[in-house]
Simulated assay, not measured.
Amino acid sequence: MAVLKEIRKYRTLLLMMVPAMIYFLLFRYGPMYGIVLAFKDFKITQGIWNSPWAGFKYFDMAFSDPYFYVVVKNTVIISLYKLLFGFPVPILFAILLNEVRRAVFKKWVQTVSYLPYFISWIVLGGMFLSIFSLDGLINQIVQLFGHEPILFLADDAYFRTILVSTHIFQTFGWESVIYFAAIAGIDPQLYEAAVMDGANRFQRAIRITLPSLLPVISILFILRMTSVLDAGFDQIFNLYSVSVYNVADVIDTFVYRKGLVESEYSYSTAVNLFKSVIALVLVVGVNRIAKSAGGKENTLW
C-alpha cells in the first residue's frame, strides 16, 4: 500500500519518465539479446537462435589478430587525447564566462558556443574536409607563408590533432551547460565574503568556484569513462580515409567494416562486446578510486 501511495503522489513525474523508459527498453535493452551472436557461428538463413554455438572462437580470432591491437591502441590514444585536452575546456570556459559582467554578451557567447553541438558530423565533416583540403582555407594560409600545400586529413602526423581539435570545437559549449548550472548554485555570500577579504577575481575563481565544482567534475569524469573506448565513430567515419587507417581506425569503425561491409557479424559482435566489458571495468574502477579519494558525494554510487 505504501508503494501505491508513493506512485499516486508522484504520478506526474512518473508519467514524464515513460517516454525515456520506452526509449531505453526498445533501443538499449531490447537489442542486447544480439550479444549471443558473439558466441555463435551466425548463419543468416538459420537466424540467431538456430545458428550453431561457437564458444569463444571469435574472441580467440580477435586476440590472435595483430591488427586488432592496432585498432585498440588507436582507440585508447584518441580517447585519452580527447579526455586530456577536451575535458578541461568546458570547465575553464564556464569559469571564465562566469566572470563576464555584461549579461547580453555572456548570453550571446553561450548561444554561439552551443551551436556546433547541434550540427551533425555529416555536415561538420564536409565543412572540415573543405577547410583542410589542398585548396582549402588552411592551405591558402600555408601557401601565404611560402610552403607547399598539405593534405592534412590524409597525413598521419596531423590527423589526430585535427580530430581532437574539431571534437573540442563541437562539444565544449554544450558540455559547459552543467558547469554553468553548478556555478549558479554556489552561495553568493561566499563571493561577498571573499571580496571583503580582498580576493581578486582570479583568487575567487580558484578558491571558491573551482572547489565548488569538484563534485560535478568528479561525477562527469566517471561518466566520461563509460565512453573512453568510444573514440567518436561519427566524427572519424566522416573524416578518415584508408591512408590514415594506421592512426585513425578505431574499434567502432573496425566493427562497422567487419559487421556491415564484410558481413562477419559474429566476429564484429565479439569485438564490440569486448569493448563494452572493458568500459564497465573502467567505470567501476574509477568510481571506486573517486570514492576512496573524495568521499561518496563525488561518485555515482
Results as ranks from 00 to 15, higher is better:
residue 55 G to Y: 12
residue 209 T to Y: 09
residue 250 V to R: 07
residue 255 V to C: 02
residue 205 A to F: 00
residue 223 L to M: 14
residue 159 F to W: 12
residue 147 H to V: 02
residue 264 E to W: 05
residue 187 D to S: 03
residue 103 A to H: 14
residue 166 T to I: 05
residue 285 G to Y: 04
residue 133 S to G: 14
residue 233 F to M: 08
residue 300 L to R: 06
residue 177 V to S: 13
residue 125 G to N: 08
residue 5 K to G: 12
residue 170 Q to N: 07
residue 176 S to C: 10
residue 93 F to C: 14
residue 27 F to W: 15
residue 184 A to T: 10
residue 68 F to I: 01
residue 166 T to D: 02
residue 38 A to P: 13
residue 36 V to D: 12
residue 264 E to S: 09
residue 135 D to S: 15
residue 223 L to C: 06
residue 11 R to C: 07
residue 130 S to D: 15
residue 80 L to G: 02
residue 64 S to D: 05
residue 272 N to M: 14
residue 291 K to E: 05
residue 166 T to A: 04
residue 36 V to S: 14
residue 172 F to P: 08
residue 40 K to S: 00
residue 227 S to N: 12
residue 34 G to L: 13
residue 273 L to Y: 10
residue 210 L to V: 04
residue 46 Q to V: 01
residue 227 S to V: 00
residue 16 M to K: 10
residue 281 V to M: 08
residue 89 V to R: 13
residue 167 H to N: 12
residue 298 N to C: 12
residue 183 I to H: 02
residue 195 V to E: 13
residue 48 I to Y: 06
residue 239 L to W: 11
residue 268 S to Q: 04
residue 33 Y to A: 09
residue 268 S to D: 07
residue 22 I to Y: 08
residue 53 W to Q: 11
residue 195 V to D: 11
residue 41 D to N: 11
residue 201 R to C: 02
residue 73 K to F: 07
residue 73 K to T: 10
